[in-house]
């Protein structure tokens, strides 16, 4: 790079008499550059330091603050959400326990009512069967008394047929009753 520079400077020197950069130093006209540099640089310094940089600085701090505030808010929201979640889970557990308890209660009540119904049914059935037995016994007793009359009639008829004599109904009856009673006693 330096060689190219030197070669170019040399060539230019031969052609037109040195680097323009050095020529302005020698003939004193460099002052115009310095004066305009001072003016423009000072202007730029004032613009940047008085307007642009304060704007940028304030917007940067503003943003930093906004981000910090948002961050805080997000953290708070997160904490609240966590709290709500814990409460929700608490409630859920409570509700579940309650549900469990009420299911147990319902089950117990159902079992109790089932047992009650069973007992009542058993009772009713026992009563019914006792009644039925009683009725059967009465029917049997009825049948027994009727059987005496029927048997007397049959016996009287048999007696008439066999002997040709009229049977004395009372006597037959007595005999049949006695026979029945003895049979019943034998039973």
């Amino acid at each position: 790079m330096v060689m190219i520079l030197l070669a170019a400077a040399d060539a230019a020197h031969e052609a037109s008499g040195g680097l323009p950069q050095l020529n302005v130093l020698f003939d004193g006209s460099f002052t115009n550059q310095i004066i305009w540099l001072a003016l423009t640089f000072a202007f730029l310094y004032i613009v940047l330091s008085q307007v642009v940089l304060p704007r940028l600085g304030s917007v940067l701090t503003e943003r930093e603050e906004a981000i910090a505030a948002d961050h805080d808010r997000a953290r708070n929201a997160h904490r609240e959400a966590e709290k709500i979640k814990a409460a929700y889970e608490d409630n859920l557990a409570k509700a579940r326990a309650e549900a469990q308890a009420s299911v147990g209660e319902a089950r117990a009540a159902a079992a109790k009512s089932l047992a009650d119904a069973q007992a009542r049914l058993d009772q009713d059935l026992a009563k019914l069967s006792a009644d039925a037995e009683k009725r059967i016994k009465a029917a049997v007793a009825d049948a027994m008394t009727d059987i005496g009359a029927v048997a007397s009639e049959v016996a009287a008829d048999l007696y008439t047929k066999l002997t040709g004599e009229d049977a004395k109904a009372d006597a037959v009856r007595k005999a049949v009753d006695a026979k029945l009673q003895s049979d019943q006693g034998a039973q």
Binding site: G28, S29, N32, W36
Partner: peptide, 9 residues
């Protein structure tokens, strides 16, 4: 002092 407005300025 030369203060000309030049192409540089």
């Amino acid at each position: 002092v030369d203060a000309s407005f030049t192409n540089s300025s």
